[in-house]
């Protein structure tokens, strides 16, 4: 997993690059919480371009992070959802609280 912090916009981008199931959710969680607490970003974006599998552990993981970021006064967005995982996002209602980034170039700054 790669994380990029943009100081100017206080934007933190996580590029997750593995399957999200119970097995690796705990590992990802520790890493995410560390960085979120370190940077206290105004906006956090989870980039899913390299995620081709996610089950309900991923829903739990995202909702947990959402609660933490929300508590710290930040916003959460999701980018680049692949077809195989889109169904999970749609049925769980996650996109209602964490909107999908439409125009990636405009909103996500990798620097």
């Amino acid at each position: 997993m790669e994380s990029i912090y943009n100081k100017m916009d206080k934007q933190l981008v996580f590029k997750i690059d593995e399957d999200i199931d119970e097995c690796c959710a705990q590992k990802i969680r520790r890493r995410l919480d560390n960085e979120i607490e370190r940077y206290m970003p105004k906006e956090t974006i989870f980039d899913f371009s390299n995620v081709t599998f996610m089950d309900s552990a991923g829903i739990g993981l995202l909702i947990g992070r959402y609660k933490l970021i929300n508590m710290l006064g930040g916003k959460v967005k999701i980018a680049n959802i692949n077809t195989p995982v889109r169904k999970i996002f749609e049925m769980s209602g996650i996109l209602k609280i964490m909107p999908e980034v439409r125009d990636k170039k405009k909103e996500v700054r990798y620097e």
Partner: peptide, 11 residues
């Protein structure tokens, strides 16, 4: 407490 979402059977 383990951040299980409770969505397993629904899925």
């Amino acid at each position: 407490n383990l951040e299980r979402s409770g969505m397993g059977f629904t899925i």
